[in-house]
Design a protein around this nucleic acid. Sequence first.
RNA 1: GCGCUCGUAGCUCAGUUGGAUAGAGUGCAACCCUCCGAAGGUUGAGGUCAGGCGUUCGAAUCGCCUCGAGCGCGCCA
Length: 542
Amino acid sequence: MNNEELLRLAIVEGAKTLGIEVTPEELTIDRSKDPAHGDYASNLAMKSAKLLHKAPVAIANELIKAIHSPIIEKIEVAGPGFINFFLKKESLGSIIKTIIEQGDNYGQLPPTGKKINVEYVSANPTGNLHLGHTRGAALGDTVCNILEKAGNEVTREYYVNNCGNQVAHLGHSLGERYRELFGIEPNFDKDDYIGNDIIEIAKQLKEEAGDRYLEDNEENRAFFVQYGIDKEFAKIKKDMEDFGVHFDKFSFESDIRKGTTIEDTIKYLSDKGYTYSMDGATFLKTTDFLDDKDRPIVKADGSYTYFMPDICYHYNKMERGFDLLIDMLGADHFGYLNRMRSALMMKGYDPNAIEFGIYQIVRVYQNGVEVKMSKRTGKAITHRDLVSEVGKDAVRYYFAARNGDSHLDFNMDLATSKSKDNPVYYSQYAHARCASLLQIGAEFPIDMTGASLKNEKESDILKQLADFPSMIESSANLRAPYKVANYIEKLAALIHEYYSSVKIIDRNDPKGTSARLGLIKASMITLKNALAILGVSAPDKM
RNA sequence: GCGCUCGUAGCUCAGUUGGAUAGAGUGCAACCCUCCGAAGGUUGAGGUCAGGCGUUCGAAUCGCCUCGAGCGCGCCA
């Protein structure tokens, strides 16, 4: 049990003697910002003022007499009724042993028994990934890491829309580009993809197959679609692997369309009375639930809207036994949430079993000017371009370090500068510094007790290290990757400050050196674990 | 028009179950390498928390209104 938990129990016990009933979970205690306010502070007295009909300060004064714990050095009442707790230095230091013993597992919370499915990226295999996908990938993968670290069983999933209009346009575009290579003037439709990536694929096909697919017939058209999808999808998978993103499962729309799943589902919804026909199309009565408009599921021409197979896909995910589905989507999909929740309710599921992780648009700036992106023209900065230019670590860090609710202004000049301006280097450098110190000081035994760590900077680091598990918890609850990034930057800053103010390896003070190296080792482990959550490497040398 | 998200330092952003003097990075100004990695550190200037009203011991945080930005409101995906 860590210090914070011990402190909570002690406060709860003390409060009970005054007739204040709180559970350790309800109790709010905060890390004090100002060292003069101790290590932890509680506002319990102020919260209880109304209930007890007493002044907060009076309650606080009674409370500090009632609270006893071996880890507490001193308790004070301050300001309008805060209770400040000063912990004994040796109890702060005990975290070092915990961290070194747990190693890579430090910060891993006990199993919750919850199964969570996170769907992210899910880009159509019709072209290069753009920076919106980069944000989805960085945020989605980091959310998965956080949820896992918080004790959940997580499945990372990618839904492949390999049917419908867009892939038809891909096939048509490829066919035109292929014929163009044989001197036939291409004839593109309005929504075709005319980017360079399609030309590349056409060239590849020509090399492999020569003029075998030149004739414009049903069979060849289908071939172009499949060939195009395969090539584009392979590129996407490669891009994601290079980005450190590994999916546990790819679900294909074509599989959903294969059997009678869709027909069966429509029949189920009709039997329940949730559908009706209008103007030759079939509508789903989502307004019976959370939606503000009924949605078509079968068009007048008999084909399905995107929504229909997607309903089946989400039913399928629920049937696989997940307690929670998270879809990471761009802001332009937000209106989709109530639609899908309504569909889940029609099958008797809790609407809160699905949530959307929405992220706002990415704007790219170069030379101070916004760069517009277009997947169709292929002139945009692609995901691949960015990662190869800036590096995986920096991109993942940068894209996960901001709340998805905010617009992300990505400065190409800054990101490509590969200089100290990039915040990821600062954190990695702190790690490398620790590794270097441990190597230089290898002759000294590591003191894991933390007992002789006494100065203020050491206490600050110890408190930050001890905060790691609770940071994981709040970050998981809020699905907030940026909290991890903030944590890392704070810890890295503390390490750099410590390094510059204290001589860590001092051959005239072997005992102190051992203690300081214990702190450095614990810091390094925690920093590495935190960086791993963002998918960023923690190099020993840079 | 309706709905959702956002508005905090010159810039990019933290501050989210309401807490003590609103923070960090970057940029700007001035400093620090006889010493374990200067890819670092120290100090300073810089704020009407978009604006207004309200709720209470206490509001950047909660409620209402106004202004501004983005997105959604397809038989597109």
